[in-house]
Every structure is written in structure tokens, then in C-alpha cells.
Amino acid sequence: MAQIVNHADVDRSLADLEHASELEDLQAVIIKLRDTYCIDHLVYHWVNSQGDQYGCGTYAPAWVDRYIEKDYLRIDPVVLGCYQRFHPVDWKRLDWSSKAARSFRREAIEFGVGNQGFSIPIRGPNGQYALFTASHNCSDTDWDEFTKTNRRPLILLAHFFNQKALEFEPDRLPEASRALSPRETDAMTFLAMGLNRAQAADTMAISEHTLRVYIESARFKLGAINTTHAVARAMSRGLIVV
């Protein structure tokens, strides 16, 4: 469990994600990422208001079939607990007290879902809703350590998967802009030129604290989980000139 995640591997997967053009591509990426994080499962699950669902992930196909056949969307505490929310949830914090929820969980464990889970709800445009979940079989202590270490990258990955899935929608509505702002462009440029954060902040006449916010936002818009990759991406896309 105490594996150190190789960020270069995550970045390669994100590049693959960027080039994905159909659901099968997303499936290949999520399998690779699951392996990178050394956990049992990683799942992206889109649910719409009509109760239609689709996604990709590493759960056993038999479990996915069972879930759909039994209409477990109606009782799954993860789906119920994350709907209309935007904070990430450790499964331990959800309400598993009902009889239906307990037997659902027993069954999920039998199908190899794992006894631990961490789910990130995503609110897309116009009421779109999806979940990104990591699950595993381990002790509470190990899982706490895993989620503490990897929570933020997983939150970013959740949103990157959702953006991609939204792109696949035939009649999709316009999304929030992902263009870099002038300040974000400056921040990426100075970092690309080899300035450290203090120097970049100084050059831009802002504090390091403020610079961190611009970098964070740029990183998200560029689909990267760390700053080095964000800078590389901004350069390769010609968004910055060094």
C-alpha cells in the first residue's frame, strides 16, 4: 500500500486520456492508472437524471452486470451519498446502516470491489453528474494513508475523466472555458524559463501565495497533475513562448 506513485506514469496516462476518442480508450487509460496506483479498482461512473449510466473501470464485468440488473443505483450508499454533492467521500463516512445497504456491501465485497473506497463526485454542466472511485482491500490505516497521499491527484483525475466523457456527448453543451488567463500564461512562462516560484512571483509583482493559485488553476486547465507536466504541456501546445 505504501507504494510511491510514479508521476511520469500518471502523466503518460493523462496524455493518452487527452488523445482518447472513444470509451474503449478511456477503459485502457483507467486500467493503466489503476496499476500505477497499485490498488484493486478505479472506476468512472456517469449517471444522468433519467437513471441511465455508463462509464469505464476495472470492476469485474459480472459485478457491473449484477449492479445494473439489480438496479443497485437506487440503494448504493456511494451514489446516494454523493449525489448533488461536490466533496470527496471516504466510504467509511457514508450511511451503510440499512439492511439493503449492508447486503449490497457484502455482495460488492464478494465480487472483489474491496472493503475500502474513496469516491469523488463531479458536477458537470447542466446537472450532469458522475463519480470517480478508487477501491481496495486493506486495513483502515493503510487506506487512510493512501487517500491522504493521493487524494488531490485523484480529484484532478476525476475531473479530467469527466471532461473527456463530456466531449464524447453528441449534443454537448458548451463547457466552462479552459483557456489560460494572462496571469496563468505568465506564471507558466516564467517557470518554463527556469525561474523558481519566488523569482516568478517577484517578476510578476505578486506574492508566492497568489502565484500558487495561478499555477493550480493553470495545471487544471492543462490537464496535468503536477507543475512540471503543466509547464511541458503549455509549451508543447504553443501556449507559451520561452
Binding site: 466552462a176 488553476s217 486547465k221
Partner: peptide, 25 residues
């Protein structure tokens, strides 16, 4: 800030003329 926000829709100038977007902000 991944969804609609007051900051992005009304105070973009103060943020340097663009939108701040991240699930971590």
C-alpha cells in the same frame, strides 16, 4: 471553481483578467 462562481463571473479583472478553475480551489 470548476462550476459557475461569483469570482469568475464578476471579479475576473481582479484575478488578472481570466478565470480561476480547479477542483482544489
Amino acid at each position: 471553481s470548476t462550476g459557475r462562481t461569483m469570482v469568475n463571473e464578476h471579479f475576473a479583472d481582479i484575478l488578472g483578467g481570466g478565470e480561476v478553475r480547479s477542483p482544489l480551489i
